[in-house]
Design a protein around this nucleic acid. Structure first.
Lengths: 135, 135
DNA sequence: ACTTGACGTCAACCTTTGTTTAAGTTCGAG
DNA sequence: CTCGAACTTAAACAAAGGTTGACGTCAAGT
């Protein structure tokens, strides 16, 4: 009977939907961790599933692995993280997401405005370097 | 006196704020076009400034050059594009932007919900593969 | 014990979006 | 005409985020 507590790469891959190659890559990058069997195979704790889900969710909104790694560094790898860890991590993301959403809304509006206003003068109109391009 | 009608790479770079290397790259990718002098130097039409602005604005919201190229293919390179071309291009972007904004809002809410609900079970909760991860 | 599928490492490769460098050519002001 | 600044190309390099392949080992079923 397989312990639910520990997963092989393959199992983690199957459960998380993330290719094993990517999981090994994440591990090389220090985003997830494993213990090794005597035969040098990886064994992931069940909590790793959560970490992986967090990684993919974060990626899906455009965050780079490096940023994700920084946040995950705050989440203990071994023992189950307290709720607070995830709350903090999420709060951090919400902020970033809100910023991005705002930026996109601004840009969308600018697009519409710029074309709609008839100026069509991209050189001087709001569309050009609205702060989003330079930043 | 310099014609405003034609720009060298350097001038286009200065005016658009985009490095000449990037402009040459865009040209290789077919996003912008130039005529060549007898000495094989590039000369851009004034309208290229608009195309470049469009490219950067589009990029700033995360659209890949390939997608931008497809839309720009609809905008005539030589004669000044009719207003309708830009309207169409913009409409296209608005749609995509709205989609992305919605996706991000959904993800943000899921984050909050997931952590807030106390389940913290990323395996089964809404955060995991909300459709945004697979798509 | 043997076979087979999953696992291990390492290096090479891929895509995107450019930048840098080297070596050589052209432009245009004086 | 001359001279420096600006231009040309091809190719190499970068960084992110992995994938693929080669080749070897481990573990589980029969």
């Amino acid at each position: 009977m397989t312990r639910v507590e520990e997963l092989t790469v393959g199992e983690l891959a199957a459960r998380s939907g993330v290719p094993a190659s990517a999981l090994r890559f994440y591990e090389r990058q220090g985003l997830i961790h494993s213990r090794r069997t005597t035969g040098n195979q990886r064994r992931y704790s069940g909590g790793t599933l959560r970490r992986v889900a967090f990684i993919r969710a974060s990626q899906s909104v455009g965050l780079p692995l490096s940023a994700i790694g920084e946040v995950l560094a705050l989440v203990p790898a071994d023992h189950t993280p307290t709720r607070e860890f995830w709350v903090r991590a999420s709060a951090c993301w919400s902020e970033q997401l809100n910023e991005r959403i705002e930026r996109m809304e601004r840009t969308r509006d600018r697009f519409t405005e710029c074309v709609g206003c008839g100026c069509l003068s991209f050189e001087r109109c709001a569309l050009v370097d609205p702060g989003g391009l330079v930043t």
